[in-house]
Amino acid sequence: MSEPLAFIRSRRIGDLLPWADQVAAAERFDLSLAQVEDLTLAADILPGRYQRNRRMLSCADQRTLFNSRVAIIGCGGLGGYVLEELARLGVGELLVVDPDVFEEHNLNRQLLASPLDLGRRKVDVAVERVARVNPAVSVTAVPAAFDLTKGGLLQGARVAVDGLDSIDARLELASVCRDLGIPLVHGAIAGWYGQLTTQPPGELLLEKIYGRAGHAIASNGVEKELGNPSFTPAVVASLEVAEVCKLLLGRGTTLAGRCLNIDLLDMEFCEIRL
């Protein structure tokens, strides 16, 4: 048995390794927190921070999540919550792509926006946030707009998550994901309303939702007139993360082939078969 592993075993309490001991193992053996986390999970010991996951996720599930890379495209209302929830869930590698800096009008809803960070790049704040929340998770930050030429960024990603704010960019992301065979979890919001679907690898479901085949549509939806409150992105982002979790673990039933329409004003959830 390796020395670090012997140390981890010696510090465990039941099947849990407390956070302080994960940090101690990293310092003592000059390992990263991520390396210690992987060793721990491989030994069927759960890092203590995940103990409330364990009735629904096994140690092997947690390791699958930790060894997964997920791309978050757009780091605003949806993307900020998606980042937070994936980091807390224990997905080990995150990619965030966003060209923008925080502005005052983001403060009503974007989890990562705060007055002190106005003017700073969203992806830089995202890196800092994950380092605070779950330092075993690594984040790659790309301060650029996603388009058809950025497909290379998605290499190695098991799932891509849509946190974009334009329909044109979403259709480009959907087409890149189709070509690369990566599942795409799509979410979009406007005021009290939202929608969600999962595009399976090799398909182009987003074109159905955005109607390009049948009629001309605007490049932005009704969000331009309705704005977005604090709760709608949190709801839709959380549903997106649940889809990602299932895709990574190959469990449950995703929204593939269905689009969920959400109306928080009348509290109606309507499913469309695509």
Binding site: G74, G77, I189, G194, Y210, I272
Partner: peptide, 10 residues
């Protein structure tokens, strides 16, 4: 017939 508006924010 059910009609939904275009939703594109994020």
């Amino acid at each position: 017939l059910s009609l939904f508006p275009l939703v594109g924010g994020g």
